[in-house]
């Protein structure tokens, strides 16, 4: 059980790192948000699950579950709010973007 938990945690930390790498490497705000939202969500889920099922002095798997649920619920909301704010603040898409329906609409 401890080994399985540690492997889950390892996978989660790799995803967290890839998410951070995406935030660093992607060309504009919206693409960075894509990497920053998705990879870190699953990364955190795996990381926390791994710790939750591994060795802990008392059972706190429920608390970790609530934390995971909370992150699933709030992460897309905050990135959506940020994307909308960025677009309204006039931050355009990167060069080489295909189209921007919202731009012509506004």
């Amino acid at each position: 059980m401890a080994l399985a938990g540690s492997l889950l945690t390892l996978a989660g930390s790799l995803l967290l790192f890839l998410g951070a790498l995406g935030v660093l490497r992607m060309p504009d705000v919206y693409n960075r948000m894509q990497a920053g939202t998705k990879a870190t969500t699953l990364g955190t889920i795996l990381f926390l699950t791994g710790i939750g099922i591994g060795r802990l002095p008392e059972p706190c798997i429920f608390r970790v579950l609530i934390l995971i649920l909370f992150i699933i619920l709030t992460n897309p909301v905050s990135s959506h709010a940020l994307a909308r704010a960025a677009h309204r603040a006039g931050i355009r898409l990167t060069e080489g973007s295909v189209k921007d329906d919202l731009d012509t609409h506004a």
């Binding site: 938990g5 967290l16 790192f17 998410g19 790498l21 591994g54 060795r55």
Partner: peptide, 15 residues
């Protein structure tokens, strides 16, 4: 398992 946990923490630090 403890070693793997430690490695994971260092990867998260790199992130």
């Amino acid at each position: 398992a403890d070693t793997i946990y430690t490695i994971s923490a260092f990867i998260a630090l790199a992130a």
